[in-house]
């Protein structure tokens, strides 16, 4: 503590992930928190882009409208390519997930913002929702035939039970990796930037700061650029994995 007071270096890499009530007091299940605030800002941004932006219904689109159409076409094509034509019925759900994740990720990159997708609770809920609905859908569409997903008929007969065990395990690990990948990526990037940010004011306290401070500022800029990429790629990956799971449910025969 004495050293900390001396150098002024304070590391709180977990600080930006804290959830606190907006108006003070305990956090109950209904309390509006900073997570609520940023989720609602996400809703606002989505409505700005998709409702205000497309209100012209122009044949020749304005800039905002063409962005909205681009996003629509991007996810629509992804669902169609990966899950097939019959997967398009579930396009609105997938598009909802994609938009929420992509807006949460990008809005979270604003300084002082909160990133809902960096929380296991949020990504875990989405991943579990995908997992459960895909499993239910698989059984509803294919009945017991859905279990054929675990029985690799192209492998030698002796290996199949072993492969079935592995497939079942990997099936149940899906929601875990699905959620932790997104939350971990978001958390990691923000924590690393936070650590670099903690190094930045070193110039105020010590001589080595002359060398360290510019480097850490540069590192933050570089990390920020990387995070812009990661924010999109992780939303893309979450969505495309959802499509892959959906395809497994609709066509379990590999």
């Amino acid at each position: 503590m004495a050293e900390e007071a001396g150098t002024g270096l304070v590391f709180h890499p977990m600080e930006p992930f804290k959830i606190h009530s907006l108006f003070g007091g305990e956090v109950h299940w209904y309390t509006p928190t900073n997570a609520t605030l940023w989720m609602f800002i996400g809703i606002l941004a989505i409505s700005l882009l998709f409702i205000v932006g497309t209100r012209g219904r122009a044949i020749v689109p304005s800039r905002v409208q063409s962005v909205a159409e681009l996003a629509y076409g991007f996810v629509h094509k992804m669902v169609e390519d990966v899950a097939g034509k019959d997967g398009l019925k579930y396009f609105p759900y997938i598009f909802t997930l994609f938009l929420f994740i992509v807006f949460a990720n990008f809005l979270g990159l604003i300084p002082m913002a909160f990133t809902p997708t960096s929380h296991i609770a949020v990504t875990g809920l989405m991943a579990m929702a995908v997992f459960i609905s895909v499993t239910v859908l698989g059984f509803m569409k294919n009945g017991a035939g859905f279990l054929g997903l675990f029985w690799v008929s192209s492998a030698p007969l002796a290996l199949r039970p072993l492969l079935a065990v592995i497939e079942v395990i990997s099936y149940f690990v899906r929601p875990v990796s699905h959620s932790i990948r997104l939350a971990g990526n978001m958390m990691a990037g923000h924590a690393v930037m936070e650590v670099f940010a903690a190094f930045a004011p070193l110039i105020l306290f010590s001589a080595i700061g002359i060398a360290v401070t510019p480097l850490s500022v540069l590192a933050i800029v570089a990390m920020y650029a990387l995070e812009m990429l990661v924010a999109f790629v992780q939303a893309y990956v979450f969505t495309i994995l959802t499509c892959v799971y959906l395809k497994d449910a609709l066509h379990p025969g590999h």
Binding site: M78, D81, V233, Y236, V237, I240, V244
Partner: peptide, 8 residues
Amino acid sequence: ATMFIGIA
């Protein structure tokens, strides 16, 4: 898309 899945 396959590459991104692999990366993920």
